[in-house]
Design a protein around this nucleic acid. Structure first.
Length: 429
RNA sequence: GCCGGCAUAGCUCAGCGGUAGAGCUCUCGGCUGUUAACCGAGUGGCCACAGGUUCAAAUCCUGUUGCCGGCGCCA
């Protein structure tokens, strides 16, 4: 037997035909003569009506069925202007496959409660839409990188040194040693490219940051890319092209989901290169005009990033941050030793979603920077081999995928952009 | 780590010294094709925990725990 999905039914191509639908009860209303069920599946929602006088037995099933019960509905698919979506199933049979206990999620919900029952909240239209958009983002990344000749690799998650300094590493017992969970593939990336030239990974990163902001979680999926011979200009173009490819794919694959989230696919299709590019110094000037005074040398915070983002109708790339606040592997600008050849891509309302740079290829300068950050070069010995044996110019970046999803979905917190978000205070469900 | 806030029914909240409340969910009944319908009734509480003040504490005070928001840090 063929079971059509709801999105297919709502096209109306099978109107007038008898169909069999599998789904879950999302909503229910009844009066003396007629009962309505709203049935959902992974593709949408459709109304089912059942008239009592025709079918007392099945009317009673509909009248009593609990929210989120799994059901199989047989009936006639009919065009009906009174039904949301324009079509409804006039049911002849309702079979309960999996009855439902009193479903805890109802009309009034706090964010905290929804996170407590996140495993059930995933069934909502909103989070289902997010999961599908998220999948399209991953798809776009894989397709783009592979088409551009990048090889996908898998770095280890157990590590012995951090790439961003030690304070935000999760410590972990590893037999009789202490190790850390990976916070970036960086130290491995720069080794992979000597074999592959162009490499990428999409893997979890773990950060023990005690952050309680709308855009921080302790575990997130990190899309990272690294390539030999790529200069700074090439890096900026890569950022633009990746973001553009993601927007295009989501607009193409997720028209329904974007509509559920009140987002316009046409707006996404406008996100094409070139993006506005400004330097850190120019960013400070723009902020000053908005009466936000940041001393030179301070990193841009969430408030600053959002204020800059508002000035442009596309993501904006901010380049050349002060050297003091940059990680040791970032290349210093040969034309201005005070700044690095780095770039942050800021998305409207979200802030930083990509952090990248040309990498320092000179061994001596790397050692100086390590020392400056108080890191022990011995911990980075295998990494330093990248500079000992045939060092070449190279660049790369890391993207917080959940931040991209947050931006595309128009969410005001990253927690909604991840199926089971982990924060400082929440590790379940 | 710093600042601010919250904790009362399954959920969302009101009550702020004097008998524990409402709406929703759920159960039962009613009901013109309803759109998270509507009408009526019922079930449902160690008022986070531990001390203190008071004739009397959900309410005031102290501490503890849990959570939320903002900053910093970052993707």
């Amino acid at each position: 037997m063929k079971f059509p999905q709801i999105r297919e039914l709502l096209t109306g191509k099978q109107a007038g035909k008898k169909i069999v639908l599998r789904g879950w009860v999302a909503r229910k209303r009844s009066s003396k003569k007629i009962a309505f069920l709203t049935i959902r599946d992974s593709t949408g929602r459709i109304q089912v009506s059942i008239v009592r006088e025709n079918n007392e037995e099945n009317y009673n099933i509909a009248d009593k069925v609990g929210y989120e019960s799994a059901v199989i509905i047989e009936g006639l698919l009919s065009e009906d202007a009174r039904a949301p979506g324009g079509f409804e199933i006039k049911a002849s049979k309702i079979e309960i496959i999996g009855p439902s206990e009193n479903f805890p999620i109802s009309k009034d919900q706090s964010q905290e409660f929804l996170l407590d029952v996140r495993h059930l909240a995933l069934r909502s239209e909103r989070l289902t839409a997010m999961l599908k958009i998220n999948s399209s983002v991953f798809e776009a990344l894989h397709v783009y990188f592979r088409e551009e000749g990048y090889t996908e690799v898998q770095p280890p998650m157990f590590t012995t040194a951090g790439s961003e300094g030690g304070s935000t590493l999760f410590e972990l017992k590893y037999f009789d040693k202490l190790v850390y969970l990976s916070q970036s593939w960086q130290l491995y990336a720069e080794n992979f490219i000597y074999a592959l030239e162009k490499a990428y990974t999409i893997a979890p990163s773990f950060r023990a940051e005690k952050s309680k902001t709308a855009r921080h979680v302790t575990e997130y999926w990190h899309a990272e890319v690294e390539a030999t011979w790529m200069d700074f200009e090439g890096l900026l173009e890569l950022m633009e092209n990746v973001i553009s490819a993601i927007c295009k794919n989501v607009a193409k694959k997720n028209a329904h989901e974007l509509k559920v989230l009140n987002r316009d696919p046409k707006e996404l299709l406008k996100i094409k290169p070139p993006f506005p590019r400004i330097t850190y110094a120019e960013a400070l000037d723009l902020l000053k005009k908005q009466e936000i005074d940041i001393p030179y040398g301070a990193d841009l915070g969430g408030r600053e990033e959002r204020a800059i983002g508002k000035l442009f109708d596309k993501p904006v790339i901010v380049t050349r941050y002060p050297r003091e606040i940059m990680a040791f592997y970032k290349k210093v600008d040969p034309e201005n030793p005070k700044v690095c050849l780095n770039a942050n891509l800021l998305a409207p309302d979200v802030g930083e979603i990509i952090d990248g740079s040309e990498r320092e290829s000179d061994m001596q300068k790397i050692l100086e920077s390590l020392e400056h950050e108080g890191l022990d070069p011995k911990d980075y010995d295998f990494y330093l081999d990248t500079r000992r044996y045939g060092s070449v110019p190279h660049s790369g970046f890391g993207m917080g995928v959940a931040r991209v999803v947050m931006w595309l979905c128009g969410f005001d917190t990253i927690k909604d952009a991840i199926a089971f978000p982990r924060t400082m205070t929440r590790v379940k469900p």
